[in-house]
């Protein structure tokens, strides 16, 4: 039976398109295991990289004896290192993510699934975690873990309020490795997102922020005398919404997005704003590709 595209985390068509992609990082990380990824580091593999002079202590197995015969000097052959990459998908699972159609959380899960799939296909280590902090997966590696990954994502539900800073702290404590962090969030944290992002940058990780906003946040269809109730802290705001207020709201939103973009740009964080109703394969293959997360 065909399922609604929005409710399926990864459809076969999307998987087919993603299969050819791979995750890219701008930073050099030491992989824990041999992977399929050519590292910037020199190591052991079949692919020749360079020569260097022998220094005492080097592994004699890598001395190029033919060269020694010709030049009477000892040189070591260096090979390209192949290693794996850590992909951390950090999903904001706060109640505010349950808005929109499909919900922002659903969109975030689809995005994490897509990136995770790309990582698993390339034997990268994929870790899924939520800012709410209730669930955290053990690193997954290899395509065989795809279903495990999807199962984990399926179990993610909007949970109790947790500030972004607390979520990041908890994430940092649980995951000590380095790699790519894709933070999928709406950044709607009244205490601010800046400290949390700084903490992630401090771990020398390649950070991507995918800023999800539902259409009702981008262009709210509200008018009249209303009592707005915050879905996270149940905070109530009495407001008379008219055209002027709506215009002002849009200005505030633009300003908020612009500040986030600027903050990220200054700290080499890749920032992507996307509405929650945008197709996830488009986000991955077009927007994230443009920003260098996948190639």
């Amino acid at each position: 039976m065909p399922q609604d595209q929005s409710s399926v985390l990864l459809s076969p068509e999307v998987m087919a398109r993603l299969e050819r992609l791979e995750l890219v990082t701008r930073k050099v990380f030491r992989g824990r295991m041999k992977g399929e990824r050519r590292s910037h580091r020199k190591g052991e593999s079949v692919e020749f990289a360079d020569y260097r002079s022998y220094v005492p202590g080097d592994d004699l197995r890598f001395i190029d004896w033919n060269l020694y015969a010709r030049l009477d000097r000892l040189y070591l052959k260096l090979f390209q290192e192949e290693e794996d990459l850590h992909l951390y998908c950090l999903i904001d699972a706060s109640p505010s993510m349950s808005f929109g159609n499909p919900t922002k959380l659903q969109c975030a899960k689809q995005l994490a699934a897509a990136l995770g799939f790309v990582g698993l296909c390339r034997s990268d280590r994929v870790v899924l975690d939520t800012l709410g902090g209730l669930k955290s997966s053990s690193p997954l590696r290899g395509r065989a873990h795809l279903w495990r990954m999807l199962e984990l994502l399926d179990q993610i539900e909007p949970n109790d309020t947790c500030s972004m800073l607390d979520g990041v702290k908890r994430f940092s404590l649980r995951n000590s490795g380095k790699g790519i962090i894709v933070l999928i969030t709406d950044l709607m944290d009244k205490s601010g997102y800046e400290t949390a992002l700084r903490m992630l940058i401090g771990r020398q990780m390649d950070l991507f922020v995918v800023h999800l906003l539902s259409p009702e946040e981008i262009d709210p269809q509200l008018l009249g005398d209303l009592r707005l109730i915050d879905s996270e802290d149940r905070d109530e705001t009495e407001i008379t919404i008219n055209r002027a207020v709506l215009k002002k709201y849009r200005n505030t939103l633009d300003q908020f997005v612009s500040q986030a973009k600027q903050f990220c740009a200054r700290r080499s964080i890749t920032y992507l704003l996307t509405p929650s109703d945008r197709a996830v394969d488009v986000i991955v293959t077009q927007y994230l590709r443009e920003r260098g997360l996948v190639q």
């Binding site: 993510m97 922002k104 709406d186 009244k190 005398d225 209303l226 705001t237 008219n242 002002k248 908020f256």
Partner: peptide, 30 residues
């Protein structure tokens, strides 16, 4: 006022921050 649950009142609060100044007069004026 009709109660409406929104994802966050974060942006709305920032929007009406200046409206809360002289709110009585603002209401009259608006």
């Amino acid at each position: 006022r009709a109660p409406i649950v929104v994802p966050s009142t974060f942006l709305w609060r920032r929007t009406i921050e200046d409206l809360h100044v002289n709110s009585l007069w603002q209401r009259l004026q608006k």
